[in-house]
Amino acid sequence: MTLSAFRQDLRVLFLTFEITLKMIAVDSFVLFGILIQPLIIAVLAIWMLTPKDPTQAIFVVIGSGMTGLWSTLLFIGGNSITRERWTGTLESLVAQPTPLSYVIFGKNLASVLQSLLSMLASYALAALLFDLELRIVQPLPFAVSIVLTVFSFVCFGLILAPVFLLNPAVQQWQNAMEFPVYILAGFLFPIALLPGWTTPFSYLLAPYWAARALHATANGSATPQELALSWGMMALFGTLYLVFSRYLLRVILRKARADATLGLE
């Protein structure tokens, strides 16, 4: 690939990012997932967790914000190709010279970055409405954890989108996939509460490592070893998702061209 072609692909990525940002900013379904649902979960969790231990407030803020990240990725990122099929624009996207993965990456980046608002909204809710003291004890590692969280979530979305497109039966499970990740990733309670056999499933999820890094850096318990492990796992899973998504997209495009079913449900 030449430098000029790469620059053009990046331009497509950022344009997709910009357009998606504008589109989802006025979509009430998305706004519910990004703002309202995490806020309701935050209210519930604050009510349930903080009377026993007020220091849990920052844990709740981060955990409920992460529920917003996951829900947005699942419903918006997961449908990023299927939505193009519904609107009849998938053929045009596939026919243009930029690989489809750049387009999906741009779309997922927009939805994941926008859903970080859920964390800010939960923060404001806990601080202003519930008058709870909130402090990020290790701000710099926390910022690095956020960057890696965004990267790993966006790459996870690159897997979801083609899987949902390839197999509509999996997409029927979309609603049922929301809470299991909240549980397995330990967004709002430690996975130690769960039966031991579920732990390997948690370890396979980038959101688990993201939650682990963000919770630990927020409450100041993150040791260098802990950070290296969580960051390393997020980077590893993000890269693996990226590589595997390229394979999945190739399969989809080959299959769609061979069967002439690109625009068909």
């Binding site: 519930l44 967790l49 929301e178 909240y182 549980i183 709002l188 309670f189």
Partner: peptide, 19 residues
Amino acid sequence: IMMPLASILFFTYLGTYAT
């Protein structure tokens, strides 16, 4: 069936963690 199960599990674990 599965979505309600996941919801029951999530809130029950959250509740038992809280109390």
